[in-house]
Design a protein around this nucleic acid. Structure first.
Ligand SMILES: [Zn+2]
Ligand SMILES: [Zn+2]
Ligand SMILES: [Zn+2]
Ligand SMILES: [Zn+2]
Lengths: 139, 139
DNA sequence: TATAATTTGCAACTTAGTTGCAATTTAAAA
DNA sequence: TTTTAAATTGCAACTAAGTTGCAAATTATA
């Protein structure tokens, strides 16, 4: 149960109550390869079902501690992922296929931080969203 | 009625029926300084009210012709703007204040196009979203 | 003016996400 | 271990953005 331990540690380090819903949801996010919606998390929870309110609240709690990011919104649904592949103020880019809807995390491509922000602006997070055709749909 | 003429020309160039709803909605977008939601467009329409379905359909029609962009989503609501301040595949960045919710169009700041996309990916549009504190909220 | 094609308005619907509250669970003290 | 206070959960009811089907109205063209 390597992921179970990791989930527990994440919660402990963030000084959060270690509950079964949080643990289960974190484990789903740990093994996920792309950001997930509440619905997708519910599907992946399998027999460890939890109320959708609990899932939304857990995601918000984890996001407040910057452990989870709302990566992007697609078809009205927010997609969440662990923050571990993002920098302090910069997230990795996400490429969404306008044909099939699939999204790919570009964890190996980085964009420079924006330059030239006028005085007074404090940047907390930079997100890059790419739309286009994925390899499957462009051939 | 300079804006009226501009709206008419936009519709004509795109080979779209020139109807009163489309004209009115376009005029609102022409004078807007930031992206607007359907609700905000309705407010700015004043006495030229149109059904919300019509507004959504008009926005979709204009977006299909790349005259309008869904710039970003904030608090579950899509925000639309004219595409005229965006490049062919690159939109100008948007800075949203996490404190007051205000959004600023950074039309004078440009980010390089992403490099290093793997073979097969076809980029259609690049969007940059910035979150942080605006000058009013950072002092 | 007549005609065909397109667009509009309405009402009903879908669905992501939120809220209040009572019941349950957690963590830490006794 | 038992007790206790604080935090979390589940439920049902709700909010609100956006969509759909269809009849009526409008547009462009001849
Ligand atoms: Zn695709
Ligand atoms: Zn990602
Ligand atoms: Zn602000
Ligand atoms: Zn803008």
């Amino acid at each position: 149960m390597k992921h179970d331990l990791k989930a527990k540690n994440i919660l402990k380090s963030a000084m959060l109550y270690c509950t079964k819903p949080r643990n289960d949801i974190l484990k789903v996010l740990i093994v996920a390869k792309t950001p997930l919606t509440q619905k997708q998390i519910t599907e992946k929870l399998g027999k460890n079902q939890h109320n959708k309110t609990t899932i939304y609240r857990t995601l918000r709690t984890l996001a407040k501690k910057d452990l989870v990011h709302k990566a992007y919104i697609h078809k009205k649904a927010s997609h969440f992922e662990l923050a571990e592949n993002c920098g302090k103020t910069r997230c990795h880019p996400h490429f969404t296929c306008s044909n099939c809807g699939k999204t790919i995390c570009l964890t190996d491509i980085s964009m420079p931080l924006i330059k030239g922000l006028k005085k007074g602006f404090v940047l907390q997070r930079q997100k890059l969203q790419l739309l286009g055709l994925c390899p499957d749909c462009s051939s």
